[in-house]
Amino acid sequence: MSRETDEFLIEKGLFLTAISSVIVIALIIIFIFWEGYPAIVNVGFFNFIFGMDWSPSNGLYGVFPMIIGSLAITGLSLLMAVPLGVFCAIFMAEIAPGKMRKILRPTLQTLSGIPSVVYGFFGLIILVPFMRVQFGGTGFSMLTASLILTVMILPIIVSVSEDAIKSVPSEYKEASLALGATHWQTIKNVIFPAAIPGVITSIILGMGRAIGETLAIIMVAGNVVQIPTSILDPVRALTSNIAIEMGYATGTHYNALFATGIVLIFMILILLVIANYFHYKKKVTVGGGYL
């Protein structure tokens, strides 16, 4: 074989590896839809999405309480994780001395590496009894799940926000300081506003993690199918629904769990599109700074 054919074949081979992730995504979507579609047809699209009752033994497949459950847990954990995460990111990018940074970085890496089951286990052993003593009830609640999720999504919010803050051109900061602004005024009025698109991306990524988290939530959320009226109510997330019932589901029930997966995929895709929009915007604004 000549050198040219070798080179040609290698390039094509590498191309195949490159499109593998696209093929995998396509296969995942095809198979989840293939298995989930019959349930949506059987139950009816409207009854499935907006149905209030999930009772497979009675043929009721409504996922609305779980959509609300997933969103409520996610929203509550963002309320805690975003302020803490963004402050921590500003701390790491602007304020922390070198030594603190050297401690914080591996700390966040470890937090993001700890298996979700370990978080769930910790929640089950420590947090659930604590909540039971403090607030009464069983201790399994939306609040307990959100607290665990807060810790789990903290690393991604901090690391992406920190990158965004660091990528603000230093001329901005220097100009503001030269005008006599204090460091905090500079952070508040110059650095942070310029980093906002990246911070929003970090929040969306954290949201994606929170919506997708499964086992840690199952272990602490109580998993009752209901629309929560208080943050101390037990809830069931979409992901939990799949993981809890897949073990024994057959027929329409089996398909309905894949259909639950379709709802999840749609939520994640919407978040990805929004994240891409802000990512694009970030490039434009930062690029604009150099013009």
Binding site: I25, I32, I211, G212, E213, T214, M246, I268
Partner: peptide, 17 residues
């Protein structure tokens, strides 16, 4: 976009697949 989507798909969806 494929790789990015793959990294944000929830693990339980991988399980279903």
């Amino acid at each position: 976009f494929g790789a990015e989507t793959l990294s944000s798909i929830p693990s339980i969806i991988f399980g279903l697949f």
